[in-house]
Simulated scan of single mutants.
Amino acid sequence: MHAMSEVRMASFNLCNFALPRVHWHRRGAGRTYTDAQWMQKRQWIAETLAAIDADIVAFQEVVSVDALRALAAEAGYAHFACATEPRFSRDDPDIYVNSTVAIASRFPITASAEIKTFETIIDQTLLDRAATYSRRPLRCAIDVPGLGETIVYAAHFKSQGALVRDATIDAIADWDEKLDRFYVERMYAGIDQVSKRAAEAGAIYLQVREDLQADIDRPVIVLADLNDGPGSHTLAILTQAQPIEDGIGSVDLADVPPAHRFRRYIHRLYDAYALPAHADFERPVTFHADRRSSVLDYAIVSNGLHPQNPNGRGAVVGHSVFDAHFAAGAPAATTSDHAPVVVTIRARRTEAGSPVIGL
């Protein structure tokens, strides 16, 4: 168990958490679990939850919601929220076409809601009027000891991969034309998936700004599979943490009135990996499948959890990736192709409001 003054939060992509005989995206070999595989997967998830010892867990790739709620309760999470149902094929109710997200907590969830709209993003950008989240994020207000009301988001951005509709290509008889068309269609699909993640990042950023309007030091954390890397535009749009090089309007940064300079920090979000000291020379990957490895999973925090913010209610002091199943070569079907990301936050105040001893 961790110290009483510390809170641990995790992002955990479960990889097709769907009951046996529910198929993943289409029917085919290896696209559903046998009863034995399902038992193995549940056991691995339970063991992993015990190992990460997180107080709050945001889950992605949730299909069988009631099964996850029961598993979380068995693991000691008395509070559970999932606002959006997964989607199944109209033609085959045993095939799921889109998963959802959920949050399990050891502390009371006082409010929860799905985040629905892109209205502001659509009005101010080139996005189509029909644009929306590929999977609607979940926003929970959680009463966290030492931090007070903390806003936690679970999110899962648009998947990578430029998917071309089979029917579009199959309808072309001539092979030269078929191949030529395939690459053009894949290019269009690539633009769509990159722009969708960028829009999702911007929409979440605006939601977090609303959370901070009344209380700039409010603890807010986004636990997410962003489906993009640390150097991506997706992360840069979500955090707004890149340096300001050209000033604020026509005013050099050094000439911003001192009384207002602090606002440069409250309008940023922070990749929690970069906040504590690390012994690692290389950032651990969080995704490994098909001989591909990358960082896709994150804990993103508001300035209220930045270690250098003297008014923050907590400080990020640790960031861990639980990737032992990658090294062991365990099959993703009975484990996951993602590794849980866990961030440790040290509260700066006790429930009574006094400073935590030693801080």
Results as ranks from 00 to 15, higher is better:
residue 300 I to L: 01
residue 148 G to V: 13
residue 105 S to N: 05
residue 103 I to G: 02
residue 159 S to M: 04
residue 196 K to S: 08
residue 321 V to G: 00
residue 31 R to T: 03
residue 183 Y to S: 09
residue 311 N to A: 14
residue 61 E to W: 04
residue 335 T to M: 02
residue 169 I to F: 00
residue 267 H to V: 14
residue 15 C to S: 06
residue 17 F to S: 03
residue 296 L to Y: 01
residue 192 D to F: 12
residue 165 R to F: 00
residue 253 L to A: 14
residue 20 P to M: 02
residue 156 H to M: 15
residue 221 I to P: 00
residue 191 I to Q: 10
residue 238 L to S: 12
residue 327 A to W: 08
residue 83 A to P: 01
residue 13 N to Y: 01
residue 334 T to I: 15
residue 97 V to P: 02
residue 13 N to C: 06
residue 96 Y to T: 10
residue 264 R to M: 13
residue 331 P to G: 07
residue 141 A to R: 11
residue 95 I to Q: 05
residue 256 V to D: 03
residue 154 A to C: 09
residue 335 T to K: 00
residue 108 P to I: 11
residue 6 E to C: 10
residue 338 H to V: 14
residue 326 F to H: 01
residue 202 G to W: 10
residue 239 T to R: 06
residue 187 M to A: 12
residue 218 R to G: 04
residue 327 A to E: 11
residue 111 A to R: 14
residue 194 V to G: 04
residue 10 A to S: 10
residue 3 A to S: 13
residue 272 A to Q: 03
residue 99 S to G: 07
residue 53 D to E: 10
residue 125 T to Y: 03
residue 77 Y to C: 06
residue 317 V to S: 01
residue 189 A to N: 10
residue 294 S to Q: 10
residue 351 E to I: 07
residue 66 D to K: 09
residue 269 L to T: 04
residue 40 Q to S: 04
residue 44 W to N: 05
residue 63 V to C: 02
residue 168 T to R: 08
residue 58 A to R: 10
residue 289 A to E: 09
residue 293 S to T: 15
residue 247 G to T: 14
residue 282 E to T: 15
residue 66 D to I: 14
residue 41 K to Y: 00
residue 166 D to N: 11
residue 50 A to Y: 09
residue 32 T to N: 01
residue 285 V to Q: 02
residue 116 K to Q: 07
residue 157 F to H: 13
residue 221 I to D: 01
residue 224 A to F: 01
residue 110 T to D: 01
residue 1 M to G: 14
residue 86 P to S: 05
residue 260 H to Y: 15
residue 299 A to S: 08
residue 47 E to L: 14
residue 200 E to W: 02
residue 262 F to H: 15
residue 307 P to E: 05
residue 37 Q to Y: 05
residue 158 K to C: 07
residue 40 Q to F: 04
residue 108 P to H: 05
residue 143 D to F: 01
residue 252 D to L: 11
residue 199 A to E: 03
residue 73 A to F: 05
residue 205 Y to S: 11
residue 25 H to P: 07
residue 271 D to H: 12
residue 214 A to F: 11
residue 202 G to N: 08
residue 38 W to M: 05
residue 149 E to V: 13
residue 176 D to M: 10
residue 80 F to Q: 13
residue 248 I to Q: 07
residue 234 T to I: 02
residue 239 T to L: 04
residue 268 R to Q: 07
residue 43 Q to F: 10
residue 86 P to E: 05
residue 21 R to Q: 10
residue 231 G to A: 08
residue 198 A to D: 09
residue 99 S to A: 11
residue 202 G to A: 12
residue 306 H to S: 03
residue 197 R to K: 11
residue 169 I to W: 00
residue 296 L to N: 03
residue 337 D to E: 11
residue 194 V to K: 14
residue 257 P to K: 13
residue 37 Q to M: 12
